[in-house]
Simulated assay, not measured.
Amino acid sequence: MSTPRSSLLTLSLLTLLSGCRWNSEPKGTDAGTPKAAAPTGPQRQLTVKGSDTLVVLGQRWAERFIQRHPHVRIQVTGGGSGTGLAALINGTTDIAMSSRRIQDTEREQLRRHHPQGPVELPVARDGITFYVHESNPVHSLTVAQLRAIYQGDITGWKDVGGDDAPIVAYSRENSSGTYLFVRDELLGGEDFSERVLTLPGTAAVVHAVALERQGIGYGGAAYAKGVRVLEVKRDAQSAPIPPTEETIRDGTYPLSRDLFFYLPQEATGTTRAFLDYVLSSEGQKIVTETGYFPVK
């Protein structure tokens, strides 16, 4: 997988209007994989915006979709879950990608324009993964230890079985759904320590940890390149659990989560065809190829 970018990623592909007709029956198979029905009708652009965790996966879905429908134009951009949901609210994207659930205030704002919305669609599974430098002797941490590191109560690796050196902790920016998930699920809704360094995107976090021998950071499982992934223990007596497909899909990994598409209303036309492809066996195979995990 190429190195993800948190900056704008745009695919120039041709698309069809949402007013086109949709046939929900698959047409043929490719090595046993159902194919989504081809949309028909006038052309338009389909926009997909939001989570940096999902942006590379969204790009790959769109690239494969265009191979089947060469008259489709899809624009895929990142910027964070909050940015994508804000774009959905103000009507500047057709689909918002989010690595967290929509908040009540966002839902209320969206319903002012789309009373039947939003439509929530889990499209992949992920586990919040903690990365350390490849030379770090620490191989696992408990949930409580991770919480203490990011709240500033543990500041040295020696306190968790590592070197006698200060911990350099990295985090995502506060517009990130990953940031909010860690804040809410790991820190119990409390703030991060002022010692924690904020970086714009998971790729930047991984790059920083790969260079900093005493670093620790977090993000999606698919981004763990050039760093080592920590196993996580629910408590001191528990066995360490790696973020694998099995542990994330069955929820035994302590920080498992769904990744979502949000729409302002029920999908039709090209949007419906694209979503059908994303959730098809072929689309979910791309999830695995990208380093994430299929939805059940």
Score class of each variant (00 low, 15 high):
111 R>F: 01
116 Q>S: 11
117 G>S: 02
117 G>C: 06
118 P>I: 02
120 E>D: 10
121 L>S: 12
121 L>A: 12
123 V>F: 12
124 A>L: 04
128 I>Y: 01
129 T>D: 05
134 E>H: 09
134 E>Y: 05
135 S>Y: 02
136 N>A: 10
136 N>I: 06
140 S>A: 15
141 L>H: 05
146 L>V: 10
147 R>F: 00
147 R>I: 02
150 Y>Q: 09
154 I>C: 07
155 T>A: 11
155 T>D: 00
155 T>E: 01
155 T>W: 03
156 G>R: 14
160 V>E: 08
160 V>T: 04
160 V>C: 07
160 V>R: 09
160 V>Y: 12
161 G>T: 05
162 G>W: 02
164 D>E: 14
166 P>K: 06
166 P>E: 09
169 A>K: 00
170 Y>S: 03
170 Y>V: 06
172 R>T: 02
174 N>L: 09
176 S>W: 01
177 G>W: 04
182 V>M: 14
184 D>I: 07
185 E>K: 10
189 G>I: 12
189 G>L: 11
190 E>A: 13
191 D>G: 00
192 F>D: 03
194 E>H: 12
196 V>N: 04
198 T>N: 14
198 T>L: 14
199 L>E: 13
203 A>P: 08
203 A>W: 10
205 V>A: 06
205 V>T: 11
209 V>I: 13
211 L>P: 00
212 E>A: 07
213 R>N: 02
214 Q>H: 15
214 Q>M: 02
216 I>V: 11
217 G>H: 10
217 G>P: 09
217 G>M: 09
218 Y>G: 00
219 G>C: 10
221 A>F: 07
224 A>H: 05
225 K>T: 09
227 V>L: 04
228 R>L: 03
229 V>G: 08
230 L>W: 03
232 V>N: 13
233 K>E: 13
238 S>T: 07
